[in-house]
Amino acid sequence: MNFGEKVKCLIKEAELYKTQGLLNESLDIYKNVEVLIEATQNVKNKDRFLAKIAHKIDSLYKQIETELSAPKPPRVSEEAQSVMKEMVAPDEPEAKGSASLASALALAKFGQFDQAIEEFTQLLATESLRTDAAKNILWCWVQQDEAEKALGRLKQWMSGDVLTFDELSGVRVYLEDLIRQAGLDTRVSKDKIHKDLEPESEVDDEDILDVDSIRFEMPRGERKGETAELEVSFQAGKYLKMLVPKKDKRLIADLNIGDYLSGMTFFSPVAIFSGNGYVSSKVVINAGPKKGDYSLEIKILNIQK
């Protein structure tokens, strides 16, 4: 086969693959043609020929790029959504026996996030499904690269009464993990999450007496429900700072930023009062005689009169 016939044959094959949508295969052949022309001397109109082949190669690259760029999942018809819902059986372990949760999960897995969020939101009203529904709403936002919206939604729940304190704590930990796993923590740092999610206090700084010590029930862990007492080392209005020695490992491990402490008792030189608090900071001391101990900050959210 002479040069002309060989090139013709290769171009025909490349075009055939293109008609089949086999763009990579077509590209490979055009590249072979380019090499063949370049390596052959005395080709008539060589530069023009090469320019034509280069144009073909460019156009194939563009088409491949378009195909590979993962398109945002389109919103599909209601019929297609029904098929998606049917596809994921209600006995999915994560659905915990609920057909409605399973069908919302199916929509989420197929990238039908708006509809899935709508269905999960309805499930917030069902106590047994509430935490799963809330977590899945946040998952949907994070999947769409919208960590800020997830944060906003959690903040909204924190200021309302949709989720209990315990549920909120769990959901919050889940969101922090989710953001970290999705690699979005460079944009939405832990500090930002903590700052954004810190609940407002109902009390003014000047209404709060000096507090010497506090008593509260451990909100989680092995000591959940047990009473703990800490001395206040510094107070700035509603913010109380306590030093927790490093030897008290369990207390340190089981108290985390974002924990709600309900039914706290505050001891002041003039009165004892109760209210609710929130763990707003937990920092390890890195220098000085207290190195290794923890500085814990609790924000007083309200006082029961």
Binding site: G21, Q63, T66, E67, P71, P73, P74, V76, S77, E79, A80, V83, M84, F110
Partner: peptide, 18 residues
Amino acid sequence: GKMISIDTHGDRTLFFDF
């Protein structure tokens, strides 16, 4: 029933046909 197809660019199936 109806055939349901969800295509992406270049007629490539994105989710499934049913």
